[in-house]
């Protein structure tokens, strides 16, 4: 993958793969290209070079909708929720359910029922499904965004810093959710700054630096020091992308 903004090379031949039923962590220092790589893979931005393969065949995403059509869902760092809409509306944003094909009259009741089920499945409790998400806590908003991704993902979920804004309890919930999703045979890609958390949940850790993958670790055998070393460039180990 390659992507540049003007003279800034955000992605410089970064390579990445995800497999079903596996949690892969993507780590790197600020500006290493993590978020850019995820946005490319989620169809939110177009790469300048490189290719995306699904089950071995190349695909092109010209919009997030294309990626979603392939069962790829993303939880963005900024959550991408509409703050004035309620949780059920956000869960179905862009995928509303209708009473009739035409005119397109919303089936609010069904959307609410589905939303309640989706939240319940993840053990999420919201005080009021009809309150605008602007009034929810940071953790609750995060839950809504995660639930939305989980509800529709059939292949891959990208989670960009999913626990950054959360308290301890909610953080544990999100990690539980990640395990549950993984056990469904979905590939989970976790972008995080939190090394202990990464080692706790990931099966595999990929390190990005300056737009390239510089190292790959099996999480079970890696230590925080090793990860930090690879991120900062002070350590170079068995990275298949190493220079």
């Amino acid at each position: 993958m390659a992507k540049h903004y003007g003279h800034v090379q955000a992605l410089d031949g970064a390579d990445f793969s995800a497999s079903p039923g596996e949690v892969a962590a993507l780590i790197g220092d600020n500006g290493a290209g993590k978020s850019t790589l995820v946005k490319v893979l989620a169809g939110a931005i177009r790469p300048d070079g490189g290719e995306i393969l699904i089950d071995g065949s190349p695909v092109h995403f010209s919009s997030p909708a294309d990626a979603r059509g392939h069962g790829i869902e993303t939880v963005y760092q900024d959550l991408a929720l509409a703050p004035d809409l309620d949780a059920a509306a956000n869960l179905h944003l862009g995928r509303e359910l209708y009473r009739l094909p035409f005119p397109r009259i919303l089936n609010r009741k069904l959307m609410r029922v589905r939303a309640r089920a989706a939240f319940a499945e993840l053990g999420i409790e919201l005080p009021d499904l009809r309150a605008p998400v602007a009034g929810l806590s940071g953790g609750q908003r995060q839950s809504v965004a995660v639930a939305r991704a989980v509800a529709y993902a059939s292949r891959i979920i990208f989670l960009d810093e999913p626990t950054a804004a959360l308290g301890v309890v909610q953080r544990g919930r999100v990690l539980d959710t990640i395990r549950r999703v993984r056990d469904r045979g979905i590939a989970v890609v976790l972008i995080s700054h939190n090394m202990p958390e990464v080692l706790a949940i990931a099966d595999r850790v990929e390190v990005l630096r300056l737009g390239r993958r510089v190292a790959t670790f099996a999480a079970a055998q890696a230590s925080v020091d090793q990860l930090v070393g690879a991120m900062t460039g002070s350590l170079e180990i068995n990275g298949d992308g190493a220079r």
Binding site: A44, S63, P64, A65, R68, T74, Y76, D78, L79, A80, L81, A82, P83, D84, L85, A89, N90, L93, G94, R95, E96, Y98, P103, R104, I105, L106
Partner: peptide, 24 residues
Amino acid sequence: AYTRFGRYTYAVGSSPVAARRAGI
């Protein structure tokens, strides 16, 4: 209040980025 057109109007105004990422 009740149609897709209305819902998208709220969504676009509430967060254009979220709406765009949702495929609207």
